[in-house]
Design a protein around this nucleic acid. Structure first.
Length: 429
RNA sequence: GGAGAGGUGGCAGAGUGGUCGAAUGCGGCGGUCUCGAAAACCGUUGUCGGUGUGAGCCGACCCAGGGUUCGAAUCCCUGUCUCUCCGCCA
């Protein structure tokens, strides 16, 4: 959420930054609401102050036994009561109107974010590794002979419908190994604190990390009002909600491996084959809570943590900076990691690392303070480290052999009891 | 799921209708004393919003939301969380 004071002080800068995201001239609307709101607050508070004074006089009149004055004042206050109720309600409504508007306005892009309308405007920062040369036509993951027995979409459809999968045997073993490997790497090499969180959360948590109010249709809600997290960014980041953290405790670096649930509304027809886009998937997430002065360096660090996973697995990838038109709602800057998928002959997103500045912190009221200092909003960052299912796809497609077997990355061997490949008939050997 | 108890300032803990934003203690900060420190003593010490150049003034907040009342931390209702006991359970 945006700082209304900042908009008040420099509406032109606010509009200019939002224009880069294709939103124009919002400041005048916001400032009009803000003025209306402040006028109502002033009116309501003035009325309330008068009543408070009168109420004290009532008490004083009674204390000295002045019954006539007591009754007179009592009637007077009773009379103005309705007015105060009305004014207070109006003030609250104005306040809510402004807040509702501010909650739906995306974060401002940093100056070095490239302009662009959609993903075509993203800029490649660097590449790592080179796609393997195949002497046969590489298949998509779900068509690889050794994978087929362990990846059952028909069974999942029977249980749950489209965009689910049942995994068995060697395939799920590799999937599990990947998650373990990612967590161990983040904990041992990158110093993140492993965390386990609920996947059902209150509505306010979803507001804190800006899934709500704008993107309600992307997530699932239970009948009693919980939301299923679309990413553990929600739980990890909201741990800071309402807190005033000691500056010395920052940065807080967390990682969690959780189920994620997404309705994928609006992606009908996209990536319908295979397990690239599912309603339920696993992700190892990274979240950092930092000070304003350190968040940009943290962004690069976090990107590096995600890259390290791909490098250790020997998976070729490229790092993109998302342009203004492709960035997520809460981000000021985002790096996407795109892994090479030979079956699709293209790079596909496997991680997204964003720095949100104080945008989420303001929504959550997450602050820190230096000793003797005033509380300030923290900066929040989140990134996938990595999407486990997509990483599985990458490992399978990049390791596939002409005979339908799959060679697995050396980094995973210790997690597979020393086994190194999936045979063409689907066994882990 | 059932029964009971309880949620007050950084912490502990008073306060059961009227200058209560809230006693007291601890902690924090400033000072006196001291070569320095401790102890002792004195003073001070919440957050958010509105308004004002400013000192300041005003409003809100004693888990949350409603209600009663001229007036609520205090009374009533609902929700929520914590604790104890029982039941059930991976």
């Amino acid at each position: 959420m945006h700082d209304i004071r900042a908009i008040r002080e420099n509406p032109a800068a606010f509009d200019a930054a939002l224009a880069r995201r294709g939103l124009s001239g919002l400041s005048s609307q916001i400032l009009a609401l803000d003025e209306a709101r402040r006028a109502k607050i002033l009116a309501a508070e003035t009325a309330q102050a008068e009543q408070n004074r009168a109420s004290k006089d009532v008490g004083a009149a009674r204390a000295r036994g002045d019954d006539a004055e007591f009754e007179r004042l009592r009637a007077l206050v009773a009379q103005t009561k309705a007015d105060i109720a009305r004014l207070t309600e109006e003030a609250a409504a104005e306040d809510a109107a402004l807040r509702d508007l501010l909650m739906t306005i995306p974060n401002l892009p940093l100056a070095d974010v490239p302009d662009g309308a959609d993903e075509a405007g993203n800029v490649e920062l660097r590449r790592w590794g080179s796609p393997r040369a195949f002497d046969f036509a590489p298949k998509e993951h779900y068509d690889i002979a050794g994978v087929k027995p362990g990846m059952d979409f028909a069974m999942a459809a029977k249980l749950s419908g489209a965009r689910f999968v049942v995994l068995r045997g060697a395939v799920i073993r590799v999937h599990r190994a990947l998650a373990q490997f990612m967590l161990d790497t983040h904990v041992n090499d990158h110093g993140l604190t492993e965390t386990w969180t609920p996947v059902l959360v209150k509505e306010e948590a979803m507001y804190g990390t800006n899934q709500l109010p704008k993107f309600a249709e992307d997530s699932y809600q239970t009948t009693n009002g919980w939301w299923l997290i679309p990413t553990s960014e929600v739980t990890l980041t909201n741990m800071a909600a309402g807190e005033v953290l000691e500056e010395a405790a920052l940065p807080i670096r967390m990682t969690a491996h959780t189920q994620c649930f997404r309705s994928e509304a609006g992606s009908a027809g996209r990536d319908t084959a295979g397990m690239l886009r599912q309603h339920q998937f696993e992700k190892v997430e990274m979240v950092s809570i930092t000070t304003p002065g350190t968040s940009l360096a943290e962004h690069d660090r976090m990107t590096g943590c995600a890259e390290a996973i791909l490098q250790k697995l020997g998976l070729p990838y490229r790092v993109m900076v998302l342009c203004t038109g492709d960035m997520g709602f809460g981000a000021t800057k985002t790096h996407d990691l795109e892994v090479w998928l030979p079956g699709q002959d293209t790079y596909r997103e496997i991680s997204s690392v964003s720095v949100c500045g104080d945008f989420q912190a303001r929504r959550m009221n997450a602050r820190f303070k230096a000793p003797g200092g005033k509380p300030e909003f923290v900066h929040t960052l989140n990134g996938s480290g990595l999407a486990v299912g997509r990483c599985l796809i990458a490992v399978l497609e990049n390791g596939q052999q002409a005979d339908g077997s799959v060679e697995l990355p050396a980094a995973l061997h210790p997690y597979l009891g020393g086994r190194t490949r999936i045979s063409a008939d689907g066994a882990l050997v």
